[in-house]
Design a binder for these strands. Structure first.
Lengths: 219, 219
DNA sequence: TGTACATCAGTGAACGCGCGTTCACTGATGTAC
DNA sequence: TGTACATCAGTGAACGCGCGTTCACTGATGTAC
């Protein structure tokens, strides 16, 4: 009986070249930003001619979309993995997120940075983004819900659709949202260098914001 | 006696063309993002040849730097003006900031979006950024300092240099910092469209985050 | 007020570049009998 | 195991494009006497 999943040598080779192309693409993005990404430059680095890449990607746009997809996938997997480690809590997610961002800032910005006007991500990418939110919701749902309700909660109660049936109480949704926006706020300013001349340690500020989020002490 | 500030017709004309160039540049950025900005395209829109622009700007980089400077200047002035209106408080600053960002999202991202690796803003631009922080510090210094101190405060106490001698208590510095990072967090995700399919009203979430910042109610 | 000269905005041609992408092809690898 | 054929990775030439930038120039505007 033949395993339909088994890869022929040719398939393995194709897959390998595709990842080599992406590796070089990430290098370029890290060095000069996503707008500088060039198919011809990648081909040159791989020692092949430009047109050869069209065996692997339909064009520049398809490659970029795949990079965005991989970035989201990587983030979603990283957070899921962190949440599954024994004793994992909201703080563990926050630290995993920061580590992931610092690992490759331009990868972070490819997802959360300046949007290209008119661009809309395909549905499967949006789905991965929902996975990320679901991981956050799981973590906050497991937390004791203390503190008074927010004025925002009533509004959110009527717009929980995006939580996609997640059983978490509305207050947990609100806290997961704040987790995302606040940590993104610090993180993106740090990565963009806006704290550079300021002297304080961004990691400590991040930790303080996290403390306030978890209720482990007011900031 | 001659007023040395008086502008000759030629100077007035030059100034006018320079702003027309920038107006077109902002249009391009709003439409296709800053990386798509093209001197030749601007010249065409103005009905002149490409090289003509070199009478007004040394090159593409100088133009972009000037756009960044103008953006910062506009933000600093907007916030200062808001803070000087009678009865102005921290909330007024927050609303002015949000309105400014929504007015031209790509202008916001030119300052706070994806950084270009290796680019460093000239000193005079950094100085305008400090003006913005100073306005925030003024507003928070005027607020009664309630709530317990943060674990971060001790660290910040030793790194207040960036506040440039501002008399605000350290807790006010911390709160101004959180004001900036949290509001930037929501705002940038909203502008980038990350809330798009989620259903809730970003303005309400923004307001709720603001409430928690001012202590007008826990979020 | 009129003339001579200097200043300066804008042009058109040109340079060199790298981009994404297409096309017809060569030659190696894999498949079927 | 050997031969005939199909598949497919990669090449090199070419297309058209728009970019930033330089250069020598024309012609209009302003200045000095």
């Amino acid at each position: 009986m033949v395993n339909p999943e088994a890869k022929t040598p040719r398939e393995r080779y194709r897959a390998q070249v595709r990842t080599e192309i992406k590796d070089r693409a990430w290098e370029q993005i890290a060095t000069a930003g996503a707008s500088a990404l060039s198919l011809n430059a990648i081909a040159k680095q791989l020692g092949m001619s430009g047109p050869a890449l069209y065996r692997y990607y339909a064009g520049r746009d398809e490659l970029i979309t795949e990079l965005v997809r991989d970035a989201y996938r990587s983030l979603a997997d990283t957070l899921r993995a962190a949440s599954r480690r024994p004793g994992a809590d909201v703080a563990a997610l926050a630290h995993a997120m920061r580590a992931w961002a610092l690992e490759d800032p331009q990868r972070y910005f490819l997802i959360f940075g300046t949007p290209v006007p008119g661009y809309h991500a395909p549905d499967d990418i949006t789905a991965i983004a929902s996975e990320v939110m679901a991981t956050l919701l799981d973590a906050f749902a497991a937390l004791p819900q203390k503190g008074p309700a927010s004025s925002f909660d009533a509004h959110l109660e009527e717009h929980r659709d995006w939580a996609d049936g997640h059983p978490a109480p509305t207050a947990a949704l609100r806290r997961a949202l704040a987790f995302w926006t606040r940590l993104h706020g610090t993180l993106s300013l740090e990565l963009a260098g806006h704290f550079d001349g300021m002297g304080f340690d961004p990691a400590r500020f991040y930790a303080a914001e996290l403390d306030e989020l978890t209720g482990d002490g007011p900031m």
